[in-house]
Design a binder for these strands. Structure first.
Length: 368
DNA sequence: AATCGACCCAACCGCAAAACT
DNA sequence: AAGTTTTGCGGTTGGGTCGAT
């Protein structure tokens, strides 16, 4: 015997919330809390809304101490570094940014940050987003002000100007900001619930390609800026096409690469040598799509592990791949069904740094 | 002034995991 | 233990706004 059925979907309102609905929901939750049951909540309040919708409205809009729009450069950096590290786990990313919701971050990433990261220039600067943000904040502040929070309006005025400044900065610096030290993130332990054969991580055969496609699809010389700190595409001296991603967090980094023709390439020497060395030898001006660059038939089988969550790949030679991780090595799966080793560290640099690291080597099946 | 396309974001949808009976 | 509901999450969509033509 289960619970009572969810809301009557035929009798619920959809679409934008009215100020009255907002007020009802906010007032009730502030007085009584959610009661641990979102589904029953709208009936108690007298709202013709689905409980799910109420929850979303509260979490993304009504709950106190939320900030909308006006993402700072530091927040940009955090979002980018986390996205590259853990993918689209917006709730985890949002947990690192107080006052931000996963939905906000997701929208921000999809509409602006991704393009910024890829250096896709907008034809003309648009201020609309910030305008809306400011409008939103003014609206929020008015509401707070009416609730007796006298600090809100001045805060909004300040944010408005900083928002405009931020927009101007964005316009002047459309590419990934250079010379920025990624923050050291006090991340919680991120569980690794997936093996290489399951789950939404970068683990399946096409995951790397998907990531690249997700991050822009075509790497056109018109758009791509080789100076991006954090995402590099390059030709090696042998003319092999290399995709290379790095996460630069504090003094640590994680890196990966893809190479056509069954060869793994990692910088000019094939050895991990730190972030600065990863920036070497960029040519960057090429136009083929990833499909053209790296035919799927030429993927090195097993390379999908390179993007397993949190794993750090440090060294690839002709016959071995060396990874390091902290003492919390937890997952081992097969490389060629028998020999691949997957590791993850339980957080990013701030935890990784200073910890005793295990060093593992194992055979790369494509080489003898 | 009208139209079009790009952009933005609130909200919905579907799925999986957790919680509950 | 099994079945059902609830919660939480990420992907997607639809409508409003704005600038360009």
């Amino acid at each position: 015997m289960g619970r009572a059925p969810c809301c009557d979907k035929a009798n619920v309102k959809k679409g934008p919330w009215s100020p009255e609905e907002d007020a009802k929901l906010k007032s009730y939750i502030e007085k009584h809390g959610t009661g641990g049951n979102w589904i029953a909540l709208p009936q108690k309040i007298g709202l013709k809304r689905c409980g799910k919708s109420c929850r979303l409205r509260w979490l993304n809009y009504l709950r106190p101490n939320l900030r909308h729009g006006g993402f700072s450069e530091e927040e940009d950096n955090i979002i980018c570094s986390l996205y590259i590290s853990i993918g689209s786990r917006w709730s985890v990313i949002a947990a690192q940014l107080p006052g931000r919701t996963d939905n906000d971050i997701k929208n921000y990433w999809n509409t602006r940050l991704k393009k910024k990261l890829l250096g896709k220039h907008r034809r003309e600067p648009r201020n609309r987003g910030n305008y809306n943000s400011v409008k939103q904040e003014i609206s929020d502040a008015n509401r707070r002000s009416s609730d007796g929070d006298s600090s809100s309006l001045s805060m909004v005025q300040e944010n408005s100007s900083t928002s405009q400044q931020h927009h101007q900065q964005q316009h002047q610096q459309l590419c990934w900001p250079q010379n920025i030290n990624m923050p050291v993130l006090p991340l919680p332990i991120i569980p690794l619930p997936y093996t290489t054969s399951q789950g939404p991580g970068f683990n399946d055969q096409d995951s790397i390609k998907k990531l690249l496609i997700k991050l822009g699809g075509r790497f056109s010389g018109d758009y791509y800026q080789p100076t991006l700190d954090g995402l590099n595409l390059q030709f090696s001296s042998q003319g092999q096409q290399v995709y290379q991603e790095q996460v630069h967090v504090g003094s640590s980094s994680s890196s990966a690469c893809i190479v056509a023709n069954n060869e793994v390439h990692f910088g000019q020497t094939g050895q991990y040598s730190g972030v600065d060395d990863m920036m070497q030898g960029q040519d960057g001006n090429f136009t083929p799509s990833f499909e053209e660059m790296v035919p799927s038939s030429n993927y090195s089988d097993g390379l999908e592990f390179l993007y397993n969550e949190g794993m750090i790949l440090h060294k690839i030679t002709d016959s071995t791949i060396t990874t390091t991780c902290d003492q919390n090595t937890t997952t081992t799966t097969n490389w060629d069904e028998t020999t691949t080793s997957i590791y993850h560290h339980d957080s990013l640099a701030s935890h990784f740094e200073g910890q005793e690291c295990a060093l593992q080597e194992f055979s790369y099946p494509g080489a003898q």
